[in-house]
Write a protein that binds this DNA or RNA. Structure first.
Lengths: 212, 212
DNA sequence: CGGTCAAATATACAAACGTATAATTCAATG
DNA sequence: CATTGAATTATACGTTTGTATATTTGACCG
């Protein structure tokens, strides 16, 4: 009987790497880290398991790459369509974008939980993590500062810091609840609560500015 | 050469179970779920690995028991010293207790992340999770309702729901940030931001009532 | 259109995992 | 103080893991 070796087509390494990263994130989110084995990843990607060590130096290397790809996508999601004539409108849109799918998503929450232990131990992943986290926080603080200034409100840097932390917290908390209990909220409800909460924290009205 | 079998003392099954649970939580929080093997647990507890299947029907059974023990401790932490003459004071103390160690703790955050995937798959753990989560949320909503009523404020059940979600979110978010970056906040800062944020969300002053 | 080389597959291997079983030892009981 | 039984240790077993190696194959090039 002749070999039953399966047929395959050659692809560019970049494409194969992307496929393996996507398969890794899918498994990590749906099945969990324990089930994310090299064999499961290869099967999910429709490849043989040898491909992992052919395109990445180790499984850990692949996990790192997957984490980086995921975090980049998350930040991009929050930055999406942050525009508007006024600082107030830009802040409102930033809050809305941060609380809209796919940023708020059971999958994103699953991935966050799956990666956090690796982040704590691996310096490379830790660096990626802190970089993205602080970028988000600074972005929010700048938007809050601009919004306060625009309304003629003055705030010390200490007050500004506390306000940014509180706004960040309410967004994080809603992100967490929305991801953990996706069916517990109506469409658009989390975004609305987020905008109203940030408005209450700042003591300013904060409608989106583009809705009618 | 005679046997080098190690000496041991008999303990009550309950005590051994508690030791194994404590070792499991320590490992889960510090080393992560991947390193929490039956051998590592037994070594952490100072016992032989056979003890796990002698006192629990499987490793999974032990994990379940450890999760239950952890969650019970967390809820107890938030309920601690929730007292006061006024609803406002009780709410302030509830917020404070929810944002104080050991509720806010890198260890608690680690454990939450470690368990979330198991919670999603195992019905028994899911039941434990939802029970404790909803108990917390209902407790908070009741305190918010009482505080509003005390101040002569009226709120529809829909408004109340949204306020409770927002308060819960800011507490969750601060819990998350405090656990993730414990060195980024001064002592008592998270609690203070939490009380001020809940006050701003409700539009009511919310001092602790017992501090001087 | 045959030659070449990386891309792929297939297989093998040592280590570690959860579990099962056998062999001991402590402490209570009469 | 001998007996007994559960608590405990020690060892073994089959499976799965990440990794290493050998073999095959598809596509590009002269």
């Amino acid at each position: 009987m002749p070999s039953q070796r399966r047929k395959f087509t050659r692809e560019e390494p970049e494409s194969r790497r992307a496929d393996l990263i996507a398969a890794t994130l899918d498994l990590m989110a749906d099945a969990g880290p324990a089930e994310t084995t090299v064999r499961a990843i290869a099967e999910e990607a429709g490849l043989s398991q040898g491909m992992i060590r052919h395109h990445f130096s180790s499984k850990e290397d692949l996990i790192n790459a997957a984490y980086q790809a995921h975090m980049a996508g998350q930040l991009e999601g929050s930055e999406r369509s942050v525009a508007g004539d006024t600082a107030r409108a830009r802040l409102a849109r930033f809050v809305t974008a941060s609380l809209t799918s796919p940023v708020v998503d059971p999958r994103a929450l699953s991935l966050w939980a799956a990666f956090i232990h690796m982040v704590r131990r691996d310096p490379a992943m830790r660096a990626t993590h802190e970089e993205n986290y602080l970028a988000y926080r600074d972005r929010l603080e700048a938007l809050v500062a601009a919004t306060l200034a625009e309304s003629g409100r003055t705030a010390t840097s200490e007050e500004l810091r506390r306000l940014a932390i509180a706004c960040n917290a309410v967004i994080d908390g809603l992100w967490l609840e929305g991801g953990a209990l996706p069916d517990a909220f109506a469409a658009g409800e989390i975004e609305a609560i987020g905008r109203a909460s940030v408005a209450a924290l700042l003591g300013l009205p904060l409608d989106d500015g583009t809705e009618e």
